[in-house]
Simulated assay, not measured.
Amino acid sequence: MFSLLGLPEEILLLIFSYLDSQALGRLSQVCRKLCHFAGKDTVWRRIARRCVNSGFTQQGTDTVSGISVKERVKVSQNWRKGRCRRETLLKWKCNLMPWIQLDGERLYISQAKDIRAYQLRSDNNGLHRQPVAIFSAHQDDVCRFVLTNSHIISGGGDGKIGLHKVHSSGSLQFSAHDQDVNCIDCQGGVIVSGSRDRTAKVWSLSLGRLGQCLHTIQTDDRVWSIAISPLLSSFVTGTACCRHVSPLRIWNLESGQLMTCLGTDFHRGAGVLDVFYETPFTLLSCGYDTYIRYWDLRTSTRKCVMEWEEPHDSALYCMQSDGNYMIASGSSYYGVVRLWDKRVKNCLHFYSLPSPTSSPVYSIRFNTKCLYAALASALHVLDFTSTDLQIRS
């Protein structure tokens, strides 16, 4: 008589990979051996790639380690249904415009002139109250900062760029712009920065040329956001849209020459506050015109391929993508965070985070378990792994 358990392991795993989550759940209740096979990562990979925020990119690359794919699929259902536990992690007295970054088990947040690193708690996805490190290099507030493997690179209101060693106390700074450094990015040994002084600049991060300006680009408009292409061949700037030029322009990283403009129908004042590449050929932008736009450089630079509108006509200050289907955005009023699925037009869920005044969401970052949002006077977390969940529809 034919026995399913008599099949080779690789054949069993191939068969199981075509089952849905309900069938796998029932199969795992048959016996211990089938339960063992039904829980393997290879079986759940196909299901996970269709889920929101499961740690898989559009290309199928798994970006998460240490958490089983099956567990990530379970938590993904909480993201899709809007089930989470809310908590305020940090509060401060003065209103700020904080920026945050996540790096493994640490969360970095700008607090006025400093950048503070906090260790994430493994038991409840909160923070240890005392920072494990404080990085200082500016005389004015930090506007934006990015992380590399070894450094934190920050731009400040003093017009300077700061370089901080992540694993030591060493920091240095150099004058970069005549006004605030509103945005900054770093990849492949190159820094790009944008400023209120209507310039974008390219800097060397290599030894012997550290802090040397390679190109100065006159954008004729205030630069609010900037991002380097993963191919390291170009970078995009998002400007205030106060001139008769597109607020989204792509520049050659090596020569500093303009390559192309994105879009043709932006309204005056529709500045781009956040922009980033998802892949070498696709990028997302958002800003004052209340839209998230998805651009595919392989199809057209004149019109985005998809767009999602903030339903309450609020400017969008920040956003992040899971690299696949989910986008999270932060609005300019009432601390509103929205979750979006690229496959549908309307947002999945929204959360209004508490604040003494109507605060924008200045920065958001998430992993497969939690979303962290920085408002003017507090840092909040939405924990989607908790068993004591609230449903927000």
Rank of each mutant, 00 (worst) to 15 (best):
residue 12 L to Y: 05
residue 56 F to H: 01
residue 131 P to G: 08
residue 263 G to W: 12
residue 101 Q to S: 06
residue 56 F to E: 05
residue 257 Q to F: 04
residue 336 V to W: 00
residue 120 L to P: 00
residue 272 V to C: 05
residue 147 L to N: 06
residue 33 K to D: 14
residue 184 I to K: 02
residue 141 D to R: 11
residue 343 R to L: 03
residue 128 H to Q: 14
residue 32 R to G: 13
residue 316 L to R: 05
residue 147 L to H: 06
residue 337 V to D: 03
residue 309 E to C: 06
residue 265 D to V: 14
residue 96 L to V: 08
residue 126 G to W: 00
residue 92 W to D: 11
residue 213 C to G: 04
residue 157 G to D: 09
residue 270 A to D: 12
residue 135 F to K: 14
residue 146 V to L: 07
residue 245 V to I: 13
residue 160 K to G: 10
residue 314 S to W: 03
residue 180 D to Q: 08
residue 377 S to H: 14
residue 121 R to V: 11
residue 133 A to G: 13
residue 285 S to T: 13
residue 318 C to H: 02
residue 143 C to N: 13
residue 292 I to H: 02
residue 207 L to P: 09
residue 62 D to P: 01
residue 55 G to W: 01
residue 343 R to H: 04
residue 364 I to H: 04
residue 169 S to L: 06
residue 54 S to G: 12
residue 108 Y to T: 07
residue 245 V to K: 14
residue 191 I to N: 00
residue 92 W to G: 09
residue 127 L to F: 03
residue 200 A to T: 04
residue 159 G to K: 09
residue 316 L to H: 03
residue 42 T to M: 10
residue 261 C to K: 15
residue 266 F to K: 10
residue 271 G to L: 02
residue 20 D to A: 05
residue 27 L to T: 07
residue 186 C to F: 14
residue 231 L to F: 05
residue 343 R to I: 02
residue 127 L to G: 02
residue 322 D to E: 12
residue 98 P to I: 01
residue 198 R to A: 05
residue 130 Q to G: 10
residue 357 T to Y: 13
residue 233 S to H: 09
residue 252 N to A: 07
